[in-house]
Nucleic acid binder design. Structure first.
Lengths: 110, 110
DNA sequence: TTTGTTCATTGCAATATTGCGATTAATTTT
DNA sequence: AAAATTAATCGCAATATTGCAATGAACAAA
């Protein structure tokens, strides 16, 4: 099938999965880390920084933009990308709630 | 290709991507939340709780186990699964470092 | 031993993802 | 206007993922 049955899960579970999925490729992790490091960035810089072809980087940027984690702004012939702070913070809340579920009171049965 | 070019990324970036990928499906998110909620669980409970077929759940459990996030223990004809606390905590460190990159000093250029 | 229970594995079909060459679109420079 | 620059899109091939029916393996109960 290759198709996740999203209708049988909660909105929260689907949202976590969507965010996680976009982090599930090292190129996108690398792009985000680069944007954090240097504040803003044009697509061409990322093509040089990471070793992938321009259409490939462009597609990864599109996915990050689609989820709202980055913003793009046209500047002449190039495009300036940066982290969308508001949406990144909102995403962090969702993911942190998932990652920080309480472990302390659990018995490790296995 | 469908094949991530892992060799051009750092070990850290690949590790983040691997953890994120396993969270990138709502069924696995749901399984983990259930294990957190009820401490331990056999596969059959999960098949009832989530609406997927037994082989499908079994495969998702296998992926979670392969990454070390859960442990499984055979108990008669059933298998008891639970969160691997040590590995979960280690994973949380890796993911939190990524999610909590400093935003405060950044200019939003776009 | 036979039967039932529970979970893992196999094998397959359907769909998704990744990567890039070729092209296009938008803009700047000459 | 023509050429150059930059990034998006298209179209394709290769691979990965998802889901499940069928089957197998391990154990328990009769």
């Amino acid at each position: 099938m290759g198709l996740a049955k999203t209708e049988m899960f909660t909105d929260q579970q689907n949202e976590i999965a969507l965010f996680a999925k976009v982090f599930g490729h090292p190129a996108r992790v690398s792009i985000l880390q680069h944007l954090f490091k240097i504040d803003s960035c044009v697509c061409g810089d990322l093509v040089n920084e990471i070793g992938l072809a321009q259409p490939t980087i462009s597609q990864h940027l599109k996915e990050l933009k689609h989820l709202g984690l980055i913003k793009g702004n046209v500047e002449g012939t190039s495009v300036c990308y940066c982290i969308d702070k508001k949406n990144w913070t909102a995403m962090k809340t969702v993911m942190s709630d998932f990652l920080n579920q309480d472990l302390t009171k659990k018995e490790e049965c296995c």
